[in-house]
Write a protein that binds this DNA or RNA. Structure first.
Length: 90
DNA sequence: GTTGAGCGTT
């Protein structure tokens, strides 16, 4: 089983590999991705990490509210993407 | 060469 993790308050220069490295020390990282604005092509400053259930819990408690790059990292369980409209664009 | 609350493309 795995858990989806939301990571926010990232630096603009943070990459998916950086997230994977950060979470890898707490467990096996299944997938890590930093979300960038698809329309502007610039980083949005947040990302998502998919880990094993146990590793995710440890990473959340270990990295949530911790400082990285001089900013407090925001780590929480991600909301189900399926619950949101695919592309609400008016 | 920018910005700063938030939840991602299939």
């Amino acid at each position: 089983m795995a858990k989806n993790i939301y990571v926010g308050n990232l630096a603009w220069s943070t990459t998916d590999a950086d997230l994977r490295n950060l979470f890898a020390e707490f467990g096996e990282v299944i997938s890590a991705r930093v979300i960038s604005d698809r329309e502007t092509g610039r980083s949005r400053g947040f990302g998502f990490v998919e880990m094993d259930d146990a590793g995710a819990a440890q990473a959340i408690q270990a990295l949530n509210g911790k400082g990285i790059g001089g900013r407090d990292l925001k780590v929480n369980e991600a909301q189900p993407r399926e619950s949101r409209p695919s592309r609400p664009r008016y």
